[in-house]
């Protein structure tokens, strides 16, 4: 059963962002005027740091009329392992984010081209992927395949959700398997990586895009930098695992500033879908 709901981004629902009139840049420490930052789609004017924004912000930013016809909006996580404090954590994440879990998806248009669009929320338990995120990604891929519409996924995630144990790990297999079928049908998939996209999500659908775009300065990798530092016993070089580093090492196609994302998607889709 698929539930339909139109989601329109409302500015008051901005997620995962510091409150107050003034905001300090996480990267360069500059004190910035909030309304000014909002106008600049949360990019620091001084150092170009891309503040983390939520799925609703990406809906507003990337989709025609800021409109997503959301599917499966009622899907909710369960606690199959009866994991310590998981129910409590879910409840508080749901209350603070007004989301059921860390990913929304549905039908949309970009530059007039119909697409299947999905976007993750880091504010929901670190964008971790459990059964709901995995299942929604799988359904988004299947829908893109059956309707032959390009798939676009905006990712941000700390990795698989520990609290759902092995079920979370299996979502890597589930989503990658669906992408193999999508590729067979030659339906395009553009993966957009935002700060941060790590571990299980990178080791599955986020790195399987025909085209992989990253926002500047986003942390991208498999193992988190702290664990690597502990393992090798030395400090990591500056810029390690940032999107610029990943571009240099051939892991992503494009580095695109948030302000240029929509335009870049339209240009790419027009070429791939052979639309004038």
């Amino acid at each position: 059963m698929w539930f339909k709901k139109k989601v329109q981004a409302k500015p008051e629902e901005k997620l995962d962002l510091p409150e107050g009139l003034w905001v300090k840049c996480e990267s360069c420490g500059e004190i910035l005027y909030r309304s000014e930052l909002e106008k600049r789609v949360w990019i620091c004017p001084k150092c170009n740091f891309h503040f983390r924004i939520g799925s609703r912000d990406y809906i507003a930013l990337l989709l025609d009329e800021g409109l997503l016809e959301e599917l499966d909006s009622e899907m909710e996580p369960l606690d199959p392992l009866d994991f310590p404090d998981y129910k409590k954590k879910l409840k508080s994440a749901q209350q603070s984010t007004k989301l059921k879990d860390g990913l929304v998806y549905g039908r949309a248009k970009i530059g007039g081209i119909p697409v299947i669009f999905a976007s993750m929320d880091f504010a929901f338990m670190g964008g971790s992927m459990g059964s709901v995120v995995g299942e929604k990604v799988a359904r988004a891929i299947r829908l893109a395949r059956s309707e032959k519409k390009p798939l676009i996924i905006v990712s941000t995630s700390g990795g698989a959700r520990m609290q759902e144990g092995i079920f979370s790990l299996m979502q890597l297999s589930k989503t990658s398997a669906e992408l193999a079928l999508l590729a067979k049908e030659r339906v395009p998939y553009i993966s957009i990586l935002t700060h941060p996209t790590m571990a299980g999500v990178m080791a599955s659908y986020a790195s399987l895009g025909d085209i992989i775009i990253a926002e500047p300065g986003a942390l991208i990798g498999f193992t988190g930098p702290r664990v690597i530092e502990q393992t090798i016993g030395e400090k990591l070089p500056p810029g390690f695992q940032r999107s610029e580093f990943m571009l240099e090492h051939g892991m992503i196609d494009l580095l695109v500033s948030r302000t240029e994302l929509r335009n870049t998607l339209i240009r790419l889709l027009k070429i791939i879908c052979k639309v004038q």
């Binding site: 990658s176 193999a180 590729a183 599955s204 986020a206 399987l208 498999f222 193992t223 690597i228 090492h249």
Partner: peptide
Amino acid sequence: GAYPGVGAEERGQFEAIAYNLFECTL
């Protein structure tokens, strides 16, 4: 687990894992 090191990240640990899942499906 997969090795958590600098070279592993530079050479795309995530891509190697994801691509195996993708390819083994079919």
